[in-house]
């Protein structure tokens, strides 16, 4: 019985966005990374080829974090105290990109120094996050943006209350931005509109729909991503951007990952469970359309990377 496979014919496509610049492109990166470009729902190769595969970023901090799980401290060891070393180890662990998360304790001079040292420690393109307080974000991101002109770094995180300064400096210095909204299709569109209305090219925006960890709200993020991707394929220009998600940050906040003792026996071995928590959160998001996945543990990186290879294989 010959079966005709039903195929969706979409009119829209996701924009291809390039992060990082090589010396030929005006930066210093060993290579740049392009994400997006899809014209079908994730990995349905029988409908359309997938031009760019999802990539993995590893999150490092500008100074040694004291509230990270000991399992992460075991994995990264001494390197955690030196961002350049840490970035190098992350590159060896298979990262395609490095996220450097700054902290409230950083001064603008510290922050610029850290980013420069990371740029010399690794050839990978960077994403730089402020500490998450509007004023401080602006205070740190502007000098970094200026000091790294042309590197095509992703600056973040832009939210509806704080995006103008970050977008303006990114535009002036040839960078990109990460636009975050709390799990809502319309809010995503709105922020993308606000940012592009400032004159930012849509080829320089990564959309961050916000995600929750497994067991802590992932179902909302999962569905919002599917809806954003469907809207984009149906032709809604303001959702046609690649998506960046942060399962590492979310999963390592949960008790399931953080705590080894005094937890229910049914949770099983701590380390394996914690890594499963991060990995499975990430896989669910990869299945729902993530283009950049930010992780923390090298073992999760290895596993998610290998899954992506299988998913993009035709």
């Amino acid at each position: 019985m010959p079966i005709e496979i039903p195929k969706d014919k979409w009119t829209g496509s996701i924009r291809a966005v390039t992060i990082g610049a090589t010396s030929a492109e005006g930066g210093t990166r060993a290579k740049s990374i392009t994400v997006g470009g899809q014209t079908s729902m994730p990995y349905l190769h029988y409908e359309a080829p997938m031009p760019n595969k999802p990539v993995i970023a590893i999150e490092i901090k500008s100074r040694k974090p004291d509230d990270w799980s000991p399992l992460l401290a075991d994995a990264w060891g001494e390197a955690m105290a030196d961002p350049a070393q840490w970035a190098k180890k992350a590159e060896e662990a298979g990262a395609d990109l490095i996220v450097v998360a700054l902290t409230l304790a950083d001064s603008p001079e510290d922050a610029v120094r850290v980013i420069k040292s990371v740029l010399s420690g690794t050839g990978l393109p960077l994403i730089v996050w402020g500490p998450g307080q509007a004023e401080k974000d602006n205070e740190l991101l502007v000098p970094i943006s200026e000091a790294t002109k042309g590197e095509k770094i992703v600056l973040g995180i832009c939210e509806d209350k704080n995006y103008r300064t970050i977008v303006a400096t990114a535009m002036a210095n040839g960078h990109l931005v990460q636009a975050r909204t709390p799990m809502d299709v319309n809010l995503s569109k709105q922020l993308n509109i606000l940012i592009s209305d400032m004159g930012m090219s849509k080829d320089r925006i990564l959309m961050d729909p916000t995600t929750g960890a497994l067991g802590y709200g992932i179902e909302y993020g999962y569905s919002v991503m599917e809806r954003l991707r469907l809207a984009a394929l149906q032709g809604d220009a303001m959702t046609q951007l690649p998506m960046i998600v942060t399962p590492g940050f979310e999963a390592w906040k949960t008790k399931e990952s953080k705590v080894g003792e005094g937890v229910p026996e049914g949770w099983g071995d701590w380390k394996a469970r914690a890594i499963n928590w991060e990995t499975l959160t990430a896989i669910a998001l990869v299945e729902s359309g993530a283009d950049v996945v930010v992780l923390r543990h090298p073992e999760s990186v290895k596993r998610v990377k290998s899954a992506i290879e299988e998913l993009v294989a035709v």
Partner: peptide
């Protein structure tokens, strides 16, 4: 039977099958 995998899978299943 590996609880360290079973538990996250059971939670994922619950999340995916919860009425959004």
């Amino acid at each position: 039977f590996k609880p360290e995998l079973l538990y996250p899978l059971l939670v994922l299943r619950e999340n995916i099958y919860t009425d959004p």
